[in-house]
Structure formats: C-alpha cells, structure tokens
Design a binder for these strands. Structure first.
Ligand code: MN
Ligand code: MN
Ligand code: ZN
Ligand code: ZN
Lengths: 138, 138
DNA sequence: CTTGATTATGCAACAATGTTGCAGCAAAGA
DNA sequence: TCTTTGCTGCAACATTGTTGCATAATCAAG
C-alpha cells in the first residue's frame, strides 16, 4: 500500500510523486507485463509524457525491465531483486498470448546458452514464446 | 536480375509491378534484414503505403519473414524455401547489432525446444541475440 | 513550519511507424 | 486491343515515442 510504495521509491532515491506511486503500485498489483496502453487503461487521467518518463526512469533504476514479446509494443514488468541501476539480470523467457495479448515473465525458464560464430559478440539474449495462455484456451 | 525476379513473383501468383520488383530484388541483394526505413533509404521515391502493403503481401505469401530484434522496428528477411503461403518455417535465431543496428538471420542456430507449464500452449518461439557484429568490433 | 534548491510534471510541437478507404491506373490473359 | 482484376498512391487517421520549456511539487535543511 501507500507507505510501502513510498519506501520503495525512496530506496531507489526517487521522489514520491502521485504518478510514480500509482504506476509502481500497479506493477506490484499486476501479474503480467504492462505497456503504455495498459497502464493508461487502469490509471485514468495520467499524462502520456510523464508516463513514458516514469517508465524510463524505473527501467534505469532497475525497478522494471522490458518484456519484449514481438507484438511491437514495449511492455515492462517488475524486476527481480538482483537488478540495479547498473545492470539488469532478467535472463528469463517471456510468453506472449496472441489471443488476449498479455505478456508474462516465465521466471523459471532461463534463456539457454548459445554457441555462435566468433564474428558476433553477444551481450544479451532473449527468448520469446508465443501461443495461447490458460485463460484463452477453449 | 529483372527476369529472375519477374519469374519469382509469378511463381507466387503475384503481379510484377515496379515496387514489388524493386523490393524483392533488394531483399535478394541484401544479406541482412530490412525495415521500412532501410528500404526507403535504398529505394528512393517509393510510396510508404505501397511499401507496407508489399511487405505484408510478401510475408503472407511466404517470401519474407519478420526478423524480430527487440529494436522496436519491424524488419524482414528472405525466407528459406520451405516457407509457403500456409506456413512459415523460419525457426532460427536473429542477431541484432546494437552499434550499426543491423539484424541478420542466424540460420545455423535453431531455437531450442523449451519445456513449459501446460498452462501455456506454445505456437512459436523466437530467439534474439544482441551485441556487436564483426564490422562493429574495434 | 517555512524556505529554497532540485527535480518532476504537463503542455506544445514534433517525428516515426502503421492502418484504412477510395478513385484511378496498370498487369496479364483472352 | 480489350476487360477484368488487382495494385497503386493519396488523404486521413491512429498510436507510440521524444524533446524543450515554463510551472509546480518534493524534500531536506534551517
Ligand atoms: Mn520479465
Ligand atoms: Mn530470419
Ligand atoms: Zn491469453
Ligand atoms: Zn554492427
């Protein structure tokens, strides 16, 4: 609630503003990744530009990470506690449901190590799984 | 050249138009994936909307496939010959160079089989590798 | 509690990608 | 050459995303 979110923001050396509290609270409350449109649907009357800046700030601080799902829309989800301002450690797969368009972190599935030609220097790897989630299977 | 591209289009039951010939030829000539901006840079005076429709058509016919690279830009590359109007078979990784922003198909690297909870029904999987390509390593 | 430095907000303005509808034009087969 | 069918290019729109700047809010210090 209120106080916890405030403390959390403070621990990241971020000021507690209405937008940041609302957005962070929403991420904590939600089990799937959230993009601009999703957040706006939940949090009415919130300024687009401020939202974009809030997301960028949260990402830089290691609070949230991008959940790339091939949908073309940038979504974010809460980081695990190992992430920091200096480095993200979200080496898990993401599942994208093509029916409901929700994206979830599959924390149990780590991206496999890949051997590639020396011509390429890999800095990071991402695994996207798509299909239908439980709710969308009839 | 000219004639070959024309034949190729015909084999997919597509009319040979200037835009289609130019775009298909460019894909054949290029070793990395191409997005809207890339194509426009190479092919001047080509209409945006027609380009988008051309790309969509080529994708539907199994001529090109999306090369998702996490850059937020939709790029395409030529399909292997197994792809058709009915199904794409491009189960390889894509490498994205964060320096030059070029994306290439890594045909030799197939996306590993993943075991996931039954809650999810996987239809496809994609692997994105990012880092620096040969040209961009100093 | 008040004050002041610093930071965040919200608006305007812009840029890029992508989609649809529609009239006119071109390709390909007859 | 003609006709049908499919393709093009324009307008118009929607969505995502960025930057600059004046104003407002936060928070730590006094
Ligand atoms: Mn994640
Ligand atoms: Mn490919
Ligand atoms: Zn679903
Ligand atoms: Zn490169």
């Amino acid at each position: 609630m209120e106080v916890a979110v405030k403390k959390l923001l403070k621990s990241y050396h971020l000021r507690s503003t209405p937008v940041r509290k609302q957005v962070l609270d929403l991420f904590i409350q939600t089990s799937h990744a959230l993009g601009k449109a999703n957040i706006e649907a939940e949090l009415d009357e919130i300024d687009r530009i401020t939202l974009y800046r809030t997301l960028r700030t949260f990402e830089q601080k290691g609070i949230i990470h991008q959940a790339i799902d091939g949908s073309g829309k940038t979504k974010y989800a809460l980081c695990s506690h190992e992430c920091s301002e200096h480095e993200h450690h979200d080496h898990h797969a993401h599942f994208y449901c093509t029916r409901c368009e929700k994206t979830v972190c599959m924390n149990s599935i780590t991206v496999p190590k890949i051997d590639i030609p020396d011509d390429f220097q890999i800095a990071s790897a991402q695994l996207i799984l798509s299909g239908t989630c439980k709710n969308c299977q009839r």
